[in-house]
């Protein structure tokens, strides 16, 4: 199916995190203001899980963010916006035709992709990671216009390449998932949306009755860090430590495993709804995030000199435990706040 050339007037803004950036940009396209941290907070982006029995890129799997598409889905639900999410398609052709039809109607559409074959992506990040999000906002001939919030400028991607990344294989395969906003009501209750999103995050971080999710998972990981050099040897221990740091700092997190973005959300909503308790929580979150960055600096020294670790893993484990307690305090505080 050939459609005529169309480019939607869509404003690309760079952001820290791919999905909340895409959500906030899509929302702003319809003329209302939603900053990236607000989208991240109302969509419960913050999360932690540690799954040592699963391996991602040859090291234990951990995640600092929620499952793909949670941010978009939840923030749209809590804000009361009419949005559509198509979870999967049967084949490539069908998914690309659906995208073309949307573009013809003038709707910028978000898609979930895998980054390994994404041609414009920075080559140092091209590993098997299937939870990346970007927005398609135009088509000219065989090429699509893409707004990827990791990059500074909008990019161009050919039909074949786009079909390939939308159907990347492996864990959390996107299967052509796409989402868009249908229409936005005139009055939006930001207060209740932020409240709902915040309390859902509190539940996920400290109340889930499973020992590998949320703060409990961070404590388990802190204990495991101490055991790694004895169990696996220095080489492997430093590679595993590197995995924590890579997931926290690189791969478009905005730094410190999204903790800065969440702190910015707490600060923004505290100012917006005049809540002093929330500003205090934001301050504590910012300080914990700074501790995360210290953890990276110290950990990276171990990774630089792999065979002979400069810092003791017991000390790093203690530091991780301290960070976990700091975050525990923040979420305990948030649990008592109603805005």
């Amino acid at each position: 199916m050939a459609i005529k050339d169309i480019v939607i007037d869509y404003k690309h803004r760079q952001a820290g995190h791919c999905e909340s950036g895409a959500t906030s940009n899509l929302f702003n396209f319809y003329g209302l203001d939603l900053s990236e941290p607000m989208a991240f907070g109302t969509g419960c982006g913050i999360y932690f899980s540690y799954l040592p029995f699963l391996k991602l890129m040859f090291a234990p799997m951990m995640s600092f963010r929620n499952f793909p598409n949670t941010v978009f889905h939840r923030s749209m639900k809590y804000l009361g916006v009419d949005a559509t999410v198509i979870k999967k398609f049967n084949d490539k052709k069908e998914s690309m035709d659906a995208l073309d039809r949307n573009l013809e109607k003038g709707i910028p559409t978000g898609v979930q992709v895998g980054v390994f074959n994404l041609t414009f992506f920075p080559p140092e990040y091209r590993q098997h990671y299937n939870m990346h999000n970007m927005v398609i906002f135009g088509k000219e001939g065989n090429n699509y216009h893409v707004s990827d919030t990791v990059m500074e400028d909008p990019q161009i991607l050919s039909y074949e390449d786009l079909a390939r990344v939308r159907w990347a294989k492996g864990a959390f395969a996107p299967k052509g998932k796409m989402y868009w906003i249908n229409n936005i009501p005139t009055e939006i209750d930001y207060r209740s949306a932020a409240n709902q999103g915040m309390h859902k995050s509190v539940y996920e971080m400290i109340k889930v009755p499973f020992w590998l999710i949320g703060i409990k998972g961070m404590r388990v990981m802190a204990r495991d860090i101490r055991k790694w050099p004895k169990k696996h040897g220095n080489e492997k221990a430093s590679f595993y430590l590197g995995q924590i740091l890579r997931m926290a700092e690189d791969f478009g997190t905005g730094g410190a495993g999204f903790r800065y973005i969440y702190g910015a959300f707490l600060k923004e909503s505290g100012e917006k709804f005049n809540n002093d308790e929330m500003l205090k929580a934001a301050d504590l979150m910012g300080k914990t995030a700074n501790r995360w960055r210290d953890f990276t600096y110290i950990g990276a020294r171990n990774c630089k000199n792999r065979a002979k670790p400069e810092e003791d893993y017991g000390m790093l484990g203690d530091m991780m435990m301290e960070i976990a307690e700091g975050e525990f305090k923040v979420f305990k505080m948030l649990d008592k706040i109603t805005i």
């Binding site: 760079q14 820290g16 920075p122 990791v150």
Partner: peptide
């Protein structure tokens, strides 16, 4: 490539 980073 340059990226957006947050600081406190």
């Amino acid at each position: 490539y340059r990226e957006m980073l947050y600081y406190y």
